[in-house]
């Protein structure tokens, strides 16, 4: 089975998020493989171990996004494709999906695995667009994936439980955190990853033209911020007293 996992490099969610004084995003932030993508990679590796085949990581981003691919390769993925092009800086969801689709189509995978959403954008728009452009069914927010022959069955997370959803391959699956515990890269894995192929492609290699963006930014303003209220140090009783006072004012107690 040929499995493509999409991966993204994002600002480290565990690092302090900062803005420079001129409101641009602080450049010194650490970047990491999106933690959500580690679940997709893990699921891809589990399926490959059970069924045989190949796990290919596809990413779009600047040159340094190669590190994110490399991390996935050290977990055990077989090879990577990095789509990088100056014209892709600030790409919207549709352009991103088009670039990913073109690179993935060339591989004719049986299964495409994406995280439900990225950690930085968190809008989750790329997977359904990608499924459409690849002409695949989408099996989304999976907390369990099973592949049997040409059939994929997932447990799709819902508000109040889950749905059992099934489709034939090729299919696109989005996975939630908690589907599987991502493995750590072993030293052997890290060494092996160094010699694994990461192919770099640009927009022209993919035969894509950058079309008109869906939107134009007119202005960026500060969001209405809430004002900080009172901050008290608890001494064993003042915390509860203060909270009770607020609850009484709010007529909750």
């Amino acid at each position: 089975m040929k499995i493509v996992v999409t991966v993204k490099q994002v600002p480290d969610p565990n690092a302090t998020q900062g803005l420079e004084s001129d409101n641009t995003i602080a450049r010194d932030r650490e970047v990491v493989l999106d933690p959500g993508d580690e679940y997709g990679i893990e699921e891809g590796l589990v399926l490959k171990e059970a069924q045989g085949g190949e796990v290919i990581l596809v990413s779009m981003g600047p040159e340094r996004a190669r590190d994110a691919i490399r991390k996935g390769l050290s977990m055990g993925a077989d090879r990577g494709i990095l789509i990088t092009d100056e014209q892709l800086a600030g790409a919207d969801a549709l352009l991103t999906a088009k670039a990913l689709a073109a690179a993935i189509k060339a591989e004719s995978p049986d299964l495409v695995i994406c995280a439900t959403e990225s950690y930085d954008g968190s809008t989750g728009m790329v997977p359904p667009m990608l499924a459409e452009l690849l002409d695949m069914p989408q099996l989304t927010t999976a907390k369990q994936v099973e592949v049997s022959g040409s059939k994929v069955t997932i447990h799709r997370q819902t508000e109040d439980g889950y749905q059992v959803v099934e489709a034939e391959t090729p299919a696109l699956v989005t996975v939630t955190a908690g589907i599987a515990e991502p493995r750590y890269a072993s030293l052997k894995g890290i060494m092996a990853a160094r010699s694994k192929e990461v192919k770099q492609v640009g927009l022209s290699d993919l035969g894509i033209e950058k079309g008109e963006a869906a939107e134009t930014v007119l202005a960026v303003n500060d969001a209405e911020a809430r004002q900080a209220g009172e901050v008290v140090e608890d001494d064993g009783s003042v915390g509860v007293e203060k909270i009770m006072a607020v609850l009484q004012t709010a007529k909750v107690v």
Binding site: L19, A213, A214, E215, T216, V217, V220, N221, D222
Partner: peptide, 12 residues
């Protein structure tokens, strides 16, 4: 930027 800023986007 996680809600600290609000961008006005014009749909094209």
């Amino acid at each position: 930027f996680g809600g600290a800023k609000i961008a006005d986007y014009k749909a094209n």
